[in-house]
């Protein structure tokens, strides 16, 4: 279970691998109001992380991973 693309947001779950980065980027670009849910994400590959950093989708729910939280929610990012 890596990414489930739902109606309003993409749910990133468990371990999201490098292969998912491109699909996620495409999906986020197609959305009017892109949003992701990271509450069940244990780890994402750096490529996925930079997709999130670059496209800045809205976050749905908590970011459970503290490092991920720091990376995505800090003002500079």
């Amino acid at each position: 279970m890596a990414i489930r693309y739902l109606k309003k947001h993409a749910a990133l779950e468990d371990i999201v691998t490098v292969e998912d980065a491109e699909a996620l980027q495409k999906w986020l670009n197609e959305q009017a109001k892109p949003a992701v849910n990271l509450s069940k994400c244990r780890h994402m590959h750096a490529a996925v992380l930079q997709v999130l950093l670059a496209l800045k989708p809205a976050l749905v729910g908590e970011v459970s991973d503290p490092w991920l939280h720091a990376a995505l929610c800090s003002p500079q990012a």
Binding site: A21, L24, Q25, A47, Q50, V51, A54
Partner: peptide, 15 residues
């Protein structure tokens, strides 16, 4: 800086 949406290559590490 993050490039434009269209020219952004998610497989070129920019971290």
């Amino acid at each position: 800086p993050w490039p434009e949406r269209d020219s952004f290559d998610c497989y070129a590490c920019n971290l």
